[in-house]
C-alpha cells in the first residue's frame, strides 16, 4: 500500500458516500444517471469475484464489501424507493449502456492476462469501469443546473483514478515485475474521459460560478 493508492481508495470511498448522502438524506437522485450506477454495480460484481476465495487483507475485504454494498443499494434506491425514484430523470438518462457492456466483454475475451473466467471478468470490469461514467457525463451535459453534490460526486470519482495512476507509476518503479498493461491503459482512458469535466469544474470553482457544461 502506498499513499497514492490510499488517497485513491479514500477519494473513491468519499465519492460513494457523497452520493449515498445525497440520495439518503434529501431522498433525491436528480442529475444522477441510473445507467452509470448500474454499470458500476456490474464493475464491482465482476471485479470482486475473488472476494471469498483470495484473502488479501482485512482492509481489502472491507472496502470490497463497501463498494459492492453501496453500488447495489444506490441502484436499489433509484429503482425501488418510492421517493427517490420520482426524482430520477428517465427521459434524459437514455444512454444505451448495452453498447458499452458488449464491446468491453468482447475486448476482455481477446485482451486478458489469462483466458480463464476470473481473468476475463477482471479485464471486463476494468474496461467497463473506464467507460461507465459516460452516461453520467452525457446526463450532466443535458441537465443544465448541476447541483453541488452531483458535481462533487463526479469530481471525486474522476480524482480517485488519477491518484491510482500515480500509484501505478510508484509501484512500477518500486516493485520488480509489477506490470499490468490492462489496468494502466484502462485507468488512463478512464481519467482522460474526465478531462473536460475537470476543466469546467475547476473553472466554475475558480470563478465561483455554478458548474455549467456546454451543450
Amino acid at each position: 500500500m502506498n499513499i497514492f493508492r490510499l488517497a485513491g481508495d479514500m477519494t473513491h470511498l468519499m465519492s460513494v458516500l457523497v452520493l449515498l448522502l445525497k440520495i439518503h438524506t434529501i431522498k433525491s437522485c436528480a442529475g444522477i444517471s441510473l445507467k452509470t450506477q448500474e454499470l458500476y454495480a456490474l464493475v464491482f460484481a465482476t471485479r470482486y469475484l475473488d472476494i471469498f476465495t483470495d484473502f488479501i487483507s482485512v482492509y481489502n475485504t472491507i472496502m470490497k464489501l463497501i463498494f459492492l454494498g453501496s453500488s447495489f443499494s444506490i441502484v436499489w434506491y433509484m429503482r425501488r424507493h418510492k421517493l427517490v425514484r420520482r426524482s430520477y430523470d428517465k427521459e434524459q438518462d437514455t444512454f444505451r449502456h448495452f453498447f458499452l457492456v458488449l464491446p468491453c466483454l468482447l475486448l476482455a475475451l481477446v485482451m486478458n492476462e489469462k483466458f480463464t473466467f476470473k481473468e476475463v471478468m477482471w479485464a471486463f470490469s476494468l474496461y467497463l469501469e473506464a467507460v461507465a461514467i459516460l452516461p453520467q457525463l452525457v446526463l450532466l451535459q443535458r441537465t443544465k443546473n448541476i447541483d453541488n453534490l452531483t458535481g462533487q460526486y463526479v469530481f471525486l470519482l474522476g480524482a480517485y483514478r488519477a491518484f491510482y495512476i500515480f500509484n501505478w507509476i510508484y509501484r512500477y518503479f518500486t516493485e520488480p515485475h509489477y506490470v499490468h498493461w490492462i489496468t494502466w491503459i484502462s485507468g488512463l482512458v478512464q481519467t482522460l474521459l474526465y478531462a473536460d469535466f475537470f476543466y469546467y469544474y475547476f473553472n466554475s470553482w475558480k470563478n465561483n460560478v455554478k458548474l455549467h457544461l456546454p451543450a
Binding site: N60, E113, N167, T183
Partner: peptide, 10 residues
C-alpha cells in the same frame, strides 16, 4: 502453470 500474482488492488 504460471500462477498470476494476486490482484491486490480494489
Amino acid at each position: 502453470n504460471m500462477e498470476l500474482p494476486l490482484k491486490d488492488e480494489l
